[in-house]
Amino acid sequence: MAVLEHMAVLEARGLGKRYGRRWALEDCTLSIPEGRVVGLVGPNGAGKTTLLHLAVGLLAPTSGSVEVLGRRPGAGSAQLGRVGFVAQDTPTYAALSVSDHLRLGATMNPRWDSAVAGRRMDQLGLDRRQRAGSLSGGQRAQLALTLAIAKRPELLVMDEPVASLDPLARREFLEGLAQVVGEFGVSVVLSSHLIADLEQVCDHLIVLVASRVRIAGDIAGLLGSHRRLTGPRQDPVTLPAGHRVIEARHTGSVSTFVVQADGPVDAGSWVVEPVGLEDLVLAYMGRTADVDGGGLSSVGVRS
């Protein structure tokens, strides 16, 4: 997981947010590298939204610290201008028209790029007089993305931007995102529970479970260093040396393992297959906190 050769766009240390007696995020430490499209995945309640709200300055930490682009989030208008945010369900003002929203963006952001906003509106074929309340979910998400990108941020943060969209709108949104990323070279952090979508746009992945980073790394590297081993059921398990078990399943006389190994390892009699991103993420989500130390002796079992 050597990803620290880049400067971090987001650096959290022991970050926590408490509501009353409930911790929405507790003791979260993570680092998100610059220049990537980072997918943040995790089960509901892992603290993804809280983490992202802390990153854009909507929330203030109860404990620990978070720095975005080297500064405290929301610490003044300049810092707010460096980070674009597309919130969950892409909120817009229902009574205001599309062009009202563009004017909102223009008056509230000194670095507003009206050419970019106009071009995207033309591409999307949105009627600018239409009220945001009557837009489809996909159009509203595109409008929200336009607002976030036309302020010319250095970092674009998106919280489940496609979760409520139909597959076609989802694809169009992600294509628009990919285009924007290619054009402006903006760093992106994007939370989603749809792993197939992440694979389409992201090059870096962070799995967050119960405020803890389960795994983080470039997707290509992760896929290269993980594999699935299948063989006859054994008890106790004796796997080839150098493998770290992420997930073990035993069905009938067959045992299947998702394992991690940094280099080529002699797998012996095991059948070795590559692991898809979705299975990889699910394997890490299934691991419980007490096996996080890793090692052959601690095997998380999903059945």
Binding site: L58, G74, G76, L80, Q88, P91, Y93, N109, A144
Partner: peptide, 17 residues
């Protein structure tokens, strides 16, 4: 209620202003 504070308060204007 409508969640638009997440839009309004993440523009380049501090929420105090």
């Amino acid at each position: 209620e409508t969640g638009t504070y997440r839009l309004a308060w993440t523009q380049s204007v501090t929420r105090g202003r």
